[in-house]
C-alpha cells in the first residue's frame, strides 16, 4: 500500500539552510546536505530544497548543490526556486534531482509546464502554489515568495496546472506558514479531493497531531514542514510511530 509521506523542506539561501516566519525573518539552520542526510537516516520519505537566493550566480549554485545532495542522500529530492526554463530543469535533473518545482515562472508562462511535462514527464514536475485566504473567503495565488498577490483562485490555477501536465501540487498556506497552528485543512482538502494528482500540504505543522489531521481531514498525500524538523522539535521517527499508531499508512 502506498504510504503517506513526511517531507522536510530546506529553504536554501547562499548555500545555507534558512528558516523564517511568514516568509520573513530568516534564521540560519545549517548545511543543507548535512541536514538532508540526517533526515534521510531518520526516515524522511523525501526532501524538498527550495532556493530563495536572488542572485545571478544562483543557477550554478543550485545545480552543484543538487549534485552534492544526490551523492550523499539515498532518498528522493525535489529542487525548486526560480526555475523558469527547460534548460534549468535539464541541468538539475542531470545533476541528480528527482523532481523540480516551478512556481512564479509557471504562473506567468503556463506553457512552461506543458513543455516540461513533454520533455521530462509529468512525474517530475511539481507545481508549487502559495495561497492566502482573502476577505471574501476564497484562497488566492501569490507569487514571488508570497510577496505579490494575484486575482487567480488557487483551485483554478491548480486545475489548469494539472491539465498542462504538473504531476504533483505543493500547496503552501501563507496564512498558516510559520505559525505552528496546524495545516490549512479546508484548503488542502479542497485540492486533494478535487485534483487527480498528489497534493503535498505545507505550512503550519507544529505538533504531531497536526500531521494526523492533514492526512485524515485534509486528505493530503504528503505533509511538508521545516523548522520543527530543523530545530528538532519533532523527531521524525517519533512522528512516524505516532501516525502509524493511529492506523495511518506510514513507512517505518
Amino acid at each position: 500500500m502506498l504510504t503517506k509521506r513526511i517531507i522536510p523542506c530546506l529553504d536554501i539561501q547562499n548555500g545555507r539552510t534558512v528558516k523564517g516566519t511568514n516568509f520573513l525573518n530568516l534564521r540560519d539552520a545549517g548545511d543543507p546536505v548535512e541536514l538532508g542526510s540526517r533526515y534521510a537516516q531518520e526516515g524522511a520519505d523525501e526532501l524538498v530544497f527550495l532556493d530563495i537566493t536572488a542572485t545571478n550566480e544562483k543557477r550554478k549554485t543550485l545545480s552543484s548543490l543538487a549534485r552534492r545532495i544526490a551523492h550523499h542522500i539515498n532518498i528522493p529530492f525535489t529542487v525548486g526556486g526560480g526555475i523558469s526554463s527547460i534548460k534549468d530543469v535539464q541541468v538539475l535533473l542531470e545533476n541528480g534531482a528527482d523532481k523540480i518545482s516551478v512556481n512564479t515562472a509557471a504562473f506567468k508562462n503556463p506553457p512552461l509546464i506543458a513543455g516540461l511535462a513533454r520533455e521530462f514527464g509529468s512525474q517530475c514536475i511539481v507545481l508549487a502554489i502559495d495561497a492566502k485566504k482573502a476577505g471574501d473567503g476564497k484562497y488566492y495565488v501569490h507569487l514571488n515568495g508570497g510577496r505579490v498577490a494575484t486575482e487567480t483562485v488557487c483551485m483554478d490555477w491548480a486545475k489548469k496546472g494539472v491539465d498542462l501536465g504538473a504531476g504533483e501540487i505543493l500547496l503552501t498556506s501563507m496564512d498558516q506558514d510559520g505559525t505552528k497552528k496546524g495545516f490549512a485543512l479546508e484548503l488542502t482538502r479542497m485540492l486533494a479531493l478535487g485534483l487527480p494528482v498528489p497534493v503535498i500540504a505545507s505550512g503550519g505543522g507544529g505538533n504531531m497531531q497536526h500531521f494526523a489531521d492533514v492526512f485524515r481531514e485534509g486528505c493530503a498525500d504528503a505533509a511538508l514542514a521545516a523548522s520543527i524538523f530543523h530545530f528538532r522539535e519533532i523527531p521524525i521517527p517519533d512522528l512516524k510511530e505516532f501516525l502509524k499508531g493511529l492506523g495511518i499508512s506510514i513507512r517505518i
Partner: peptide
Amino acid sequence: SAEDHTLKVPQIGWN
C-alpha cells in the same frame, strides 16, 4: 485516475 481522485496519478511515494 479514479473519478473521486482516491487513486492519484502519477503514483508518487513508497510502496
